[in-house]
């Protein structure tokens, strides 16, 4: 079962997906990987801040908030 591939920033609260390999390197990628956001990790968008940004995601029991501008770099294969 494979769903549409979308940037994480476009997922709505409650939507789930599987992380695709990060395209770029840099501080963001390094940090997300260290936290365990590896390619193939299942994530859920838990909530969004009152102004819609940042969003909070959950993966491997960790709850992490990140800005949509940063979340745009992460591609997710959505579960339909």
């Amino acid at each position: 079962m494979s769903g549409a591939i979308r940037p994480l920033a476009t997922l709505r609260v409650g939507e789930k997906g599987r992380v695709r390999p990060l395209k770029s390197g840099g501080a963001l990628a390094g940090r997300l990987l260290a936290l365990g956001l590896l390619p193939g990790t299942d994530i859920t968008v838990v909530q969004a801040a009152p102004l819609g940004d940042p969003v909070e995601i959950e993966f491997r029991g960790m709850r992490l908030s990140l800005r949509k501008s940063d979340a745009a770099a992460v591609e997710v294969e959505c579960f339909s």
């Binding site: 940090r31 997300l32 936290l35 990140l66 940063d70």
Partner: peptide
């Protein structure tokens, strides 16, 4: 700027 990532403990 660095990315803003924050754990929600």
């Amino acid at each position: 700027p660095l990315p803003f990532l924050m754990e929600m403990p």
